[in-house]
Amino acid sequence: MSAPLLHLENATMQFGGLKCVSDLSFAVGTGELIGLIGPNGAGKTTVFNLITGVYRPTLGNITFAGKSVVGHRPYRITSRGIARTFQNIRLFGSLSVFENVRTACNMHLRHGISHALMRGPKFAAENRETECFVDELLTIFGLTAARDEPCRNLPYGDQRRLEIVRALATRPKLLLLDEPAAGMNPTEKNELMKLIRFTQEKFGLAVLLVEHDMKVVMGICQRIIVLDYGRKIAEGTPAQIRSDPKVIAAYLGKEAA
């Protein structure tokens, strides 16, 4: 078996006396679609924050494509190929839909500040290239109609979709989705599931998905990791997870198990 794309080894995150994530190990291989589930407060978002460098793990190691990402600033980790969306939508509120996505192309620019100022032919060429790339993404995700709208005018579901588009514009190898279906109705959720699978196939991505909606997670994930109180209590295929007594206990309480 080749080395996994993302590998957490005994990652632990402690805030004061509270261990939000303890001794967590798992791996995500290239092109895999993995679900990360658990009751509220199980530490799922903290895991994302550890992977993307918002927090530095107290103990343990996290490697991406064979190299450790611990201690790197978030933007560096993104440039290595990890992109994410946020549970509480964090779009660039004053920018248009187009500009939001274009901003994510920033780190792939071949030309720097002097080109932005001089605006020579090279700048124009690269500018056109970026615009085409962004417009293509917007078309794929059906956001072209809203291209020049301020992003905060979008309906909630579209904002979530825009977050995914923006993350994709960084051209990642691994995409972390933090509750992308939150607040959506069943039709929207179905569409989202299709979209996630489509994206994963089209861009050859690995996806790590945090989601509360079991139907979504069970429906599209190849493997599921279950967290409770910051610990991994189970890992396996959707069928294995569904029948795991520890998982049922974590979700419904001990007596129900």
Partner: peptide, 26 residues
């Protein structure tokens, strides 16, 4: 010229949401 370029959109991103900006590689 700065703020109306892909390069300069980094300034606006920092203003709007620093954490999201970092997550977008800025």
């Amino acid at each position: 010229n700065l703020v109306h370029s892909t390069y300069g959109s980094g300034f606006l991103a920092v203003r709007d949401d620093e954490i999201a900006a970092e997550a977008m590689g800025i």
